[in-house]
């Protein structure tokens, strides 16, 4: 655990908090892509299946407890978000702007996970699938943003925190590479792709929102 990793995780938590705050405060899920939220839920469940494995034989360190708590928070908050979007605030969701075809993303990531993984076991392929899927899970949301052309400020704060947390993970990996000889190509390449997908968004967020303007696409 280093300062980059912990900051990134806290920023990820903050992004989830902002999203829940946005929905509760405005009592609306307008501007939020259900498809992206669904993909994140699939990502968390596929990746954190190890929660259901026996922990008895693992050495129990503080970081293990930390990971377990975070995994439970990520899974439960993403399922809760789906509930809010599909039930509680359903009337405020506009499916006509959320039209990205996630079937292709799911199929592509499954194919890549079957082809490029560290070990060909069910758990390992699902973990790899979740890494690839997380990298592209924001695409329906960015697509929705480009269709509507503008976003509420709180929604842009959510997206910024969500994108920036992965950017800080890049620093964490550089740090770990130097300090621990840690190497993980699957995670590194996916993380770089994930961060790159946000570059346009980061630019507009910096140009407009940070200068007190509304987020409007040029």
């Amino acid at each position: 655990m280093n300062v980059f990793r912990i900051s990134a995780d806290l920023l990820h938590l903050l992004s989830i908090f902002i999203l829940l705050l946005k929905m509760q405060k405005t009592r609306s899920v307008a501007g939020i892509s259900f498809k992206t939220q669904l993909l994140y839920t699939i990502v968390f469940i596929a990746r954190y299946l190890d929660l259901f494995e026996s922990h008895a034989e693992k050495s129990f360190e503080l970081v293990t407890l930390y990971n377990i708590v975070m995994k439970i928070i990520f899974i439960s908050s993403s399922v809760y978000t789906l509930y809010l979007m599909k039930k509680k605030f359903r009337a405020t969701y506009d499916p006509n702007t959320d039209t990205f075809r996630i079937e292709y993303l799911l199929a592509l990531c499954l194919f890549l996970a079957l082809m490029f993984n560290y070990r060909f076991t069910v758990m390992e392929v699902l973990w790899t699938f979740s890494i690839y899927l997380e990298a592209v899970a924001i695409l329906p949301q960015l697509f929705m943003l480009s269709r509507t052309g503008e976003a509420e400020t709180i929604t842009t704060h959510y997206l910024f925190a969500l994108g920036f947390y992965r950017a800080i993970y890049l620093l964490n990996w550089i740090w770990r590479f130097h300090m621990e000889d840690y190497v993980d190509w699957i995670v590194w390449i996916s993380g770089a792709v994930q961060t790159a997908l946000y570059s346009d968004f980061f630019y507009i967020y910096y140009k407009k929102v940070l200068h007190g303007e509304k987020f409007v696409l040029p």
Binding site: R5, D9, H12, D50, V63, N67, M70, K71, F74, Y118, R119, E124, W127, Y169, V183, D184, V187
Partner: peptide
């Protein structure tokens, strides 16, 4: 990457 393939990140 070591043989145990420890996944200690989230």
């Amino acid at each position: 990457r070591d043989e145990k393939n420890v996944k200690d990140e989230l």
